[in-house]
Every structure is written in structure tokens, then in C-alpha cells.
């Protein structure tokens, strides 16, 4: 078990490192933050001074080495634009992002699982087929299109819900629903197919042969087993949710990490972007580790093997 954990952690660290290198090289090849900070008529001496100040005049490997050395000391850098530690910036914006993503996840699970289960139990009927066709569409449409359509309908035409900011509970509705819709679609589709698979298992027939009442057969014997593979899918979907939240937060001007991160890209605020990428990579990797643990808790067969 310890070796398994050590191996998982090592692989996770390598993933984060690779992501960091990719991001480091990509953003630096896109241009210098100095071009954005200074007006176009700044003298070469002025820009050179600033580049020296931020260490941007050094070679890429040198810069990277310095950055990693600082990371190891717990120094995550200072925002070039805002001139304050990146950790402070992220600490401020973490909560709204977690709230939004958490709400979307909750909606996705609470709607997607029953929807998929009902679609499986009523398979072949017109309503179930229509729901699944809709789910397929929901899965295929990108977040920003859903966001625009929802804003058009509920904010612009009906004027029921606000579309920017996080001032009240109502402000959560549109971004959370935008994030949740593809999640509902994915969960429902997967739940339906695993339910159909489990419904044909011998042990479900055994439960019926024992005289177990149908609601208990469906919940305890069918759904309980169908939920196991869903845990894995949920882990992958949460990674997708994190990606989606970047875009959705930008569309809805959500005061969260997404805005910080996209802002840092357009302003070439290297330290902010780099920290964001590391943080998101660590989040995705740890969710995947968590999924493995959850799976072991939920499935006795895995428990014994590990």
C-alpha cells in the first residue's frame, strides 16, 4: 500500500512538473509583460531595466531554475502587475470559485444520477429516449455557448436572473447551471449505461428470486453497484469542471480564480499564471487520487487487493 501511494505521488509530482514546464515555455514565447506595462513610446533603456529587475533578461533554463528554487523555499513569486504575493491574490479569490464549482458538482450529481437511473428503468420509452438525446446534446455543447444562451434567455429577454458578479444568491444560478448542465449530461449518460449493465447481472436476479421488494432491488442491488464505476467518471468530470469554471467565470464576471487566471494570461503576469497552473494541476491530480481512495472505500473487492 505504501509503495502504491509513493508511486502515485511520484507520478502526480511529475505531472505537475511537466505542466509547469509547458506553461513556463509557452507564456514566455508569447511576449514580454513589459510591452503591456509600459506605453509604446518607452525607451529601450527603460524596458531593459524592468526586464532586468524581473529577471526576464536571463535565459529560459536559468529563469526556470530560479523559479523552481524559489518554489522550494515556499516563495511563489510576486505579481508583476499588482506587485503583491500571488498567494494573497489566490487566497482572496479561492472561495467564490470553490462555491461555484461545488454547487455545480452538487447539482450535477443530484440531478444526473436519478436522471440516468430513471432513463435506465424506463428504457425504450419515448420520454427516456428524448432525455438521453438531450443529454447527448448537453454533453457536446461547450460551456461558453450554454452560458451565452442562458444569459440571452434568462437575463436579457426574461430579465429573471443577473448575469454578472456574485452579489447575491441569485447570481449563483446561471453560472452554476451552466457548469452543471454538461456534468448532468455526462453523469446521466454514464449512470444509464452502467445501470443497464448491472440490471442484467445474475445477482439482481438472485435478489428478485429471494422476494426482495423492487424498490430495494433497484436501490441496493442495482444502483449501489452501478455507482461504483461512476466514481471514476466523476473524478474525470471534476477535472473538466475545473477547466470549465475558468471560462464560465470569465463569461459571468465571477470574482474567482478563473478571472485571475485568464487576466494573468492577457497581461502576461507570469508569476500569477504559473502559480495558477500549478494550483489547478495539483487540484486535478489530488482529485484523481481521492477518487482512487473513494473507490477502495466503496468497493470491497478493491479493498482486499490493496
Amino acid at each position: 500500500m505504501l509503495r502504491f501511494i509513493a508511486w502515485r505521488l511520484g507520478r502526480a509530482a511529475l505531472t505537475v512538473l511537466l505542466v509547469l514546464v509547458g506553461c513556463f515555455v509557452a507564456i514566455r514565447s508569447a511576449g514580454s509583460p513589459v510591452d503591456i506595462l509600459y506605453p509604446e513610446d518607452a525607451t529601450p533603456e527603460q524596458t531593459a531595466l524592468l526586464e532586468k529587475q524581473w529577471g526576464l533578461d536571463r535565459s529560459l533554463p536559468e529563469q526556470f531554475g530560479l523559479y523552481v528554487a524559489n518554489l522550494a523555499r515556499g516563495d511563489f513569486g510576486v505579481s508583476i502587475i499588482e506587485r503583491r504575493p500571488v498567494t494573497h491574490i489566490y487566497a482572496e479569490k479561492l472561495q467564490p470559485t470553490l462555491q461555484l464549482a461545488g454547487l455545480a458538482l452538487l447539482i450535477g450529481v443530484c440531478v444526473g444520477i436519478p436522471l440516468g437511473a430513471i432513463a435506465a428503468l424506463r428504457r425504450g420509452r419515448a420520454a427516456a429516449r428524448a432525455a438521453m438525446a438531450l443529454a447527448f446534446t448537453g454533453y457536446a455543447v461547450p460551456h461558453f455557448i450554454i452560458a451565452i444562451v442562458l444569459i440571452l434567455i434568462f437575463s436579457y429577454h426574461l430579465n429573471w436572473l443577473p448575469s454578472t458578479g456574485a452579489a447575491s444568491a441569485w447570481h449563483y444560478v446561471l453560472p452554476a447551471v451552466t457548469l452543471a448542465l454538461p456534468l448532468i449530461a455526462a453523469i446521466a449518460r454514464y449512470m444509464r449505461s452502467t445501470m443497464l449493465d448491472v440490471m442484467n447481472q445474475d445477482y439482481v436476479r438472485t435478489a428478485r428470486a429471494k422476494g426482495v421488494a423492487e424498490p430495494r432491488v433497484v436501490t441496493l442491488h442495482v444502483m449501489r453497484n452501478a455507482l461504483l464505476p461512476l466514481i471514476t467518471v466523476l473524478g474525470l468530470e471534476v477535472a473538466g469542471l475545473i477547466n470549465g469554471s475558468l471560462i464560465v467565470e470569465t463569461v459571468f464576471s465571477w470574482p474567482g480564480l478563473g478571472k485571475v487566471l485568464t487576466g494573468s494570461v492577457s497581461r502576461r503576469d507570469f508569476p500569477v499564471l504559473q502559480f495558477g497552473v500549478i494550483a489547478y494541476a495539483i487540484a486535478v491530480v489530488s482529485i484523481n487520487c481521492l477518487v482512487d481512495v473513494l473507490y477502495a472505500v466503496a468497493d470491497p473487492r478493491v479493498r482486499v487487493e490493496s
Partner: peptide, 10 residues
């Protein structure tokens, strides 16, 4: 089939 006739998680 005794191998598949019992619920694996109970």
C-alpha cells in the same frame, strides 16, 4: 453460476 449470483458489495 455461484461466482456471479451474489451481490459483490454486500
Amino acid at each position: 453460476e455461484p461466482m456471479t449470483s451474489l451481490n459483490p458489495v454486500l
